[in-house]
Write a protein that binds this DNA or RNA. Structure first.
Length: 1139
RNA sequence: GCGCGGGUAGCUUAGUCGGCUGGAGCACCCGGCUGAUAACCGGGAGGUCGCAGGUUCAAGUCCUGCCUCGCGCACCA
């Protein structure tokens, strides 16, 4: 059995807070086996700094040093060595960019849950990770080294380039580490997983081979935006960098039907794709018309045209838009009746038919619309995504007409061959509009109907500014569509926060899942481990040893190969250098791709352990993981690839709980991004308010999944309100505890024997803690923390401490003082533990000072389920867990009563404002009308209200009258549409008492509706003419109206007392202004004008309150010095001098 | 275009099953309290609950349409 914290190991690193195992008498940290057990459980409580001197930043940074020396993070894990595991998986960031405040937010939520679970007794290992491959890294390096094309990179040398990438990924590692440490995100950065490590890559290869063996990996084409200048295809991210609005020629082309005199009209904005045309797509449910040109058009501009009598087919909706001729509609029909019709190729030699039976026919596609064009979509298989998919489904020939360098392939057309496609627009227009058309068989007017300039946004290369071509590239895919049902099933089992991300956004994505295009024509990444010969035979390599044996086989078969050592670098260009041999003796070369870097991070659950080559046990025990947490932008990123990989490789889900965080916006609501330059530097706040306030602000500013407008003032506010207040509560307790030598373990104080004020705050503590915990469980961290902050500021600081101050001023060792000290001690230790997961610094200082033990190994006040025998992260014995909770008893009645007392104290101030009576002038009497018994708080109330005495008035009618309010819920079904009229009569009854009597006797009827007691709500309000106010407590039938009435009559005694209080207040302010010590004495002289007589007692009170050693009271103002301080109150003027 | 989530006071936000007068905090103004506090308390001013319809005796809340912001997806023939 482990006992926490109270013993000291003699090893220097274990000076404080270490643990030792009682049975083996060994220190569990250093395992030296020598534990020095102290007789006293704790060092004397250190006297803390006063709040005025509080330097939160210094407090945090010195604590960071202490944590480092103590190895506090590791110890917090070790102390739960025997606890149930709670598995967290870190989503690896890329360290080639500077961390911003948005990274702090994500790390705060990761840390919060891990610390919370640790305090609950779970063992929460936290391995760091770095994402090091991929496009952003390459782009960064390309920019820096001015290698703006694949040619340039290859000229520079792929090995040099990849070395530069390898170096580049660590550019900001230090910045990340510093940020991580400073914000106290506890994660193991000394043994992180790194996606570029050979071990990691080997695990990725293994996973890929699992997919390959299951037939889930295949080779195909993907149409991608491609730049012929740089020779690279672009991700959507890069495409977005280069959208430009351009005007280009678009053309309406006539496709001459075979065995029919009509042509089908189709439209395209990319004339260069026309030689590649092999099909026309129509919407099966779109209505088309066949029209005959009846008259030549006037004012024709541009190329093209049609002759009278010529027939064309197009969508009915677009006739007006497209046709410039007057026409006669011959026929109307749905698109489906066009399907299968054959037409003549525009460029007959450009594409071979092969064995296709569908080439140059009309096909149907449900995505065809009539928003643009002619309602007929020209289909060039290799140059559009829809075109390609349609082509594959329909069996169209898939041949390029354009080379990788952007020029037409030889054989397309003599006038086009070898020319850059974007320069051929006019040539194509000319060819089509020539008599007989490009194929020499067209009708008299040519194959072009119209040309039209078209303005649109078109993607351009962000590096060379050239227009991109959509181009079908060789590509590798993972057949995700084959495991769609499993993906959905596994997703159903995930606990998502918020649930709508899982059901909605992510579920939607999975229901429409497409095969995952996993290959990239890039250099820096995990190489695709597939080798292929020219017959299409393939081998997927799943490990280094397999590569070695395959290389050996190839060498034996006569193919030369470089050495393949155990530590072979699994990157390009090394792996490209190996030639393997196929079963039939042919050379196999590696497919020249790297993997989508999302595949790397999707392998993290096992690749971080080098599974299956190492760490099998670690992996088995930690998969699937219990908790991941990232920004909502990872929905289609990491959240997806984790699930995609785990489903295809293990047929299991990857994670059980996922917290999806909202985006971080700047104060104006704009997304934080490098390009906008609006990223908030976390150090601005770390160095000003500290990480505690920054983290607490982030969590309380809104629900984790909502977008957070990061407001720097909010951090300031949080610091002032939450942390200064907490510190002051602590200081108040610690100062007096130190003076009195208070030791919570050397004295006891039964809660049941403590004052009602103590029992109230302890009950509030228990209630708040329970709600806090419940909100944590429901992922409502924002609600939890807002409520706790309210408890600390409102209940503890502004009521409990304020009301308790005089209790601790007592020099004698009273039981009441002791009760107060125990209460404060219990509040602070519990509150510190509750706050610790969110803001770990200040609470640790406080907790250490109060208990001698770090808060980060303390038990969660609501119990430690992780420490229970047989518990798992999801399941434990509730009863046993409840037994480990440590909270004071609750008394909800007391809480309600105190709420009322506080409300009445506030009401009193309101009454005075209304009546124009100043706060310091006492009232002779206050009456409380109805309500629960609160006799025990009368003294508090009298003080707060500044009344001489409080009385309970039992004759309700003396100060209160009745008001009736309609109960709509009961009344509406009875009165129906008359409900408002009936309600009005009830509300505005001239004599509500009489009305009530008639209701209660059952004889009341209004507008034909009989009214019973359930139809009205009885309220008591103060009678007019009294200085009074009424509050309502409770809800519905249990609600009660309580009035407070103040006696506004003045007596000589009251006036004297009031004046004395005003004078005292001014003198105290003066003392403060003069910076006098609390113990310092003064000489006092006072002159007055128009003042009430002051009683001897009240003069004495002034003298004692202000610590005056000498005091002179003049009853006039004649000799008052001109220069002295004076004030006026209620027509009285007072001059006073303090020396 | 489709999906998800927002739009409430100058700013940040709460608002449960539709119910009577839509709450807080910051900032502002007036007043008060105060020898733990950079805090606190009372009052004031500040609201077309994005807009328009609808359902209902009753709508910030439910329904429909629209505007707008964010994110994601698709499309750009």
């Amino acid at each position: 059995m482990l006992v926490k914290g109270l013993q000291t190991c003699v090893e220097t690193l274990c000076v404080d807070n270490s643990l030792y195992d009682v049975q083996t008498a060994q220190c569990v940290v250093c395992l030296k086996g020598e534990v020095q057990v102290k007789t006293s459980s704790r060092l004397a409580m250190a006297r803390p700094q006063s709040a005025g001197e509080l330097d939160a930043v210094a407090l945090e940074t010195s604590l960071l040093d202490a944590w480092k020396k103590e190895n506090a993070f590791q110890q917090s894990i070790d102390s739960n060595r025997n606890g149930a595991p709670f598995i967290f998986l870190e989503g690896p960031p890329t360290a080639n960019g500077k961390p911003g405040i948005h990274h702090v937010v994500a790390r705060a939520y990761k840390d919060l849950v891990c610390r919370w679970k640790t305090m609950e007794g779970f063992r929460v290992e936290r391995k760091g990770g770095w994402d090091t491959h991929g496009l952003p890294v390459e782009i960064e390096v390309q920019k820096r080294m001015d290698l703006m094309s694949n040619e340039a990179i290859e000229a520079y040398g792929m090995d040099n380039f990849n070395q530069a990438c390898r170096d580049s990924v660590w550019t900001y590692e230090t910045a990340w580490r510093e940020m991580t440490e400073r914000m106290a995100y506890w994660v193991d950065l000394d043994n992180p997983y790194v996606t570029l490590d050979n071990d990691y890559v080997e695990s990725c290869w293994w996973a890929m081979k699992q997919m390959f063996d299951k037939g889930l990996l295949y080779r195909g084409h993907k149409v991608l935006p491609y730049c012929p200048q740089t020779g690279t295809s672009y991700s959507s991210h890069e495409v977005a960098l280069g959208y430009k609005e351009v005007e280009e020629p678009s053309v309406y082309v006539k496709f001459k039907l075979i065995d029919d005199s009509a042509s089908i009209l189709a439209w395209t904005t990319t004339p260069w794709t026309l030689p590649g045309n092999v099909g026309l797509a129509v919407g099966p449910n779109v209505t088309y018309v066949r029209v005959k040109v009846s008259e030549q058009a006037e004012n024709w501009t541009g190329a093209g045209g049609a002759s009278v009598g010529e027939e064309v087919i197009l969508a009915k909706d677009l006739m007006k838009e497209v046709l410039r001729h007057n026409v006669e509609v011959l026929e109307e029909f749905p698109g489906s009746s066009l399907v299968g019709r054959a037409y003549e190729p525009l460029f007959s030699k450009a594409v071979p038919r092969g064995d296709s039976t569908t080439a140059w026919t009309v096909l149907e596609a449900d995505w065809v619309t009539t928003t643009d064009g002619t309602g007929v979509v020209h289909t060039a298989v290799m140059y559009g995504e829809d075109d390609y998919n349609l082509g594959m489904a329909a069996g169209l020939p898939a041949y390029h007409t354009v080379d990788m360098d952007g020029s037409f392939l030889v054989g397309t057309h003599p006038k086009l061959d070898g020319r850059y496609v974007k320069e051929c627009d006019q040539t194509i227009i000319d060819l089509l509009s020539a008599p007989h058309g490009s194929n020499g068989k067209g009708p008299e007017s040519g194959l072009l109907y119209r040309e039209k300039a078209y303005l649109h946004d078109y993607p351009h290369c962000w590096r060379t500014d050239h227009p991109l071509l959509y181009y079908a590239m060789d590509s590798w895919f993972v057949r995700m569509t084959a495991v769609k049902e499993r993906l959905l099933e596994f997703n159903d089992g995930v606990e998502w926060a918020p649930d709508w991300v899982g059901e909605g956004r992510f579920g939607e994505w999975l229901r429409n899942v497409k095969d995952w295009a996993i290959s990239r024509e890039r250099y820096w990444g995990t190489p695709l481990p597939v080798w292929r010969d020219d017959e299409g035979n393939m081998k997927c390599i799943g490990s280094i040893s397999e590569l070695q044996s395959e290389v050996a086989r190839a060498v034996a078969a006569g193919f030369e190969n470089p050495d393949c050592p155990d530590d072979v670098d699994l990157h390009r260009p090394v792996v490209d250098g190996y030639t393997l041999v196929s079963e039939n003796g042919k050379p196999m070369h590696r497919e020249p791709f790297v993997m989508d870097c999302w595949f790397d991070s999707g392998c993290a659950p096992f690749a971080q352990w080098h599974h299956p080559f190492d760490g099998a046990e670690t992996f088995d025990a930690s998969f699937p993981v219990d908790y991941i947490c990232e920004g909502v932008d990872q929905t289609r990123g990491w959240f997806y690839t984790l699930l995609a990989v785990s489903t295809t490789v293990f047929d299991k889900p990857a994670y059980k709980r996922c917290l999806s965080l909202g985006l971080i916006l700047d104060a104006e609501g704009k997304k934080m991004s490098k390009s906008r330059g609006n990223i908030v530097d976390p150090w601005d706040h770390f160095n000003r308010e500290g990480a505690d306030a920054t983290r607490w602000y982030m969590v309380t500013a809104g629900a984790p999944w909502n977008p957070l407008k990061f407001d720097s003032n909010g951090v300031r506010e949080t610091y002032a309100k939450m942390f200064l207040t907490l510190w002051n509560i602590y200081k108040f307790h610690a100062d007096y505890a130190a003076i009195d030598g208070f030791d919570p373990e050397q004295s006891t104080s039964e809660v049941s024997s403590r004052s009602s004020l103590d029992r109230w705050i302890l009950s509030r503590l228990a209630t708040t803690a329970e709600n806090y915990h419940a909100d944590f469980k429901g992922w409502n961290f924002h609600k939890a923390c807002r409520d706790l902050e309210d408890f600390i500021v409102n209940d503890v600081s502004n009521w409990y401490v304020r009301r308790s101050r005089r209790r601790l001023w007592d020099d004698a060792e009273t039981t009441d003082k002791l009760a107060c000290q125990h209460t404060l001690h219990e509040i602070l230790t519990t509150v510190c533990r509750l706050i610790a997961p969110v803001s770990p610094f200040m609470v640790d200082v406080i907790h250490r000072n109060l208990t001698g033990m770090t808060v980060h190994q303390a038990a969660w006040p609501l119990g430690t389920p992780g420490s229970i025998e047989g518990a798992t992260a999801d399941n434990w014995d509730e009863e046993a867990a409840a037994a480990t909770a440590r909270l004071p008893p609750k008394d909800l009645t007391l809480e309600a009563t105190m709420a009322l007392v506080r409300e009445l104290a506030e009401v009193g101030r309101r009454i005075r404002v209304d009546a124009g009576r100043r706060q310091r002038l006492p009232c002779a009497q206050g009456w409380i009308v109805s309500g629960p018994d609160m006799t025990e708080f009368h003294d508090i109330l009298a003080e707060e209200l500044n009344v001489e005495s409080i009385e309970v008035e039992n004759d309700l009618d003396r100060f209160q009258q009745i008001e009736l309010a309609p109960n709509f819920r009961a009344l509406a079904p009875k009165a129906r549409s008359e409900v408002n009229a009936v309600a009005g009569q009830i509300k505005n009854a001239e004599n509500p008492t009489e009305l009530l009597a008639s209701i209660q006797s059952g004889t009341c009827e209004i507008m034909g509706v009989s009214i019973d007691e359930g139809d009205v709500e009885i309220r008591r309000v103060e009678r007019e003419g009294f200085a009074a106010s009424t509050v309502t407590i409770g809800q519905g039938e249990d609600s009660q109206q309580i009035s407070l009435v103040l006696d506004m009559n003045d007596t000589d005694e009251l006036l004297s007392k009031g004046l004395a209080r005003d004078i005292t207040r001014r003198i105290q302010a003066k003392r403060k202004e003069l910076n006098l010590e609390i113990e310092a004495t003064i000489d006092l002289e006072i002159w007055v004008k128009n003042a009430p007589d002051m009683f001897e007692d009240d003069q004495q009170w002034i003298v004692s309150e202000t610590r005056a050693s000498a005091a002179v009271f003049h009853s006039d103002s004649e000799n008052a010095p001109q220069e002295t301080d004076s004030f006026e109150v209620d027509g009285t003027t007072v001059w006073f001098s303090v020396r």
